[in-house]
Amino acid sequence: MANITMTVNGKSVSGEVEGRTLLVDFLRTDLRLTGTHVGCDTSQCGACTVHVDGIAVKSCTMLAAEADGADVSTIEGQANADGSLSAIQAAFQEHHGLQCGFCTPGMVMAAADLLKKNAKPTEAEVRHHLEGNICRCTGYHNIVKAIMAASGQDVSQLAAE
């Protein structure tokens, strides 16, 4: 067992973990931050996406010990300081970019990662960036639309509905 300390959503946290403890398990079990989900075991679905030192990673494919000393943000830390939804979260609601909600935390974290690097992504760039995030409910239409809308683009003419 090893002691680790990291910043999660702006708060310093510490805990004792085994070598094999995954970051997602540390978040979900030790910190009770259950917004980060596990949807597969082959590192493909992206439901567990969080940011570590500002970049998106799959927390099911990273050891908790690797995040020792890191700055981690999760879905629980995405809302604005006053508790209102962030621009990305609000766009997901506005454009119905979620149904069952299970993949949603990973989608929001992936979207935040994209918009940090690319302020006005095209449809193709959004779809390419979501390569590692699987949604089974929405058919992606409204997720792509929500992310483009969150970047300030007019999405009203994107597709007939």
Binding site: T36, T74, I75, Q78, Q93, L98, G101, T104
Partner: peptide, 12 residues
């Protein structure tokens, strides 16, 4: 229901 899902507060 979106607000709880979008903020990680859903309870699965």
């Amino acid at each position: 229901e979106d607000v709880r899902f979008l903020t990680g507060q859903g309870q699965y």
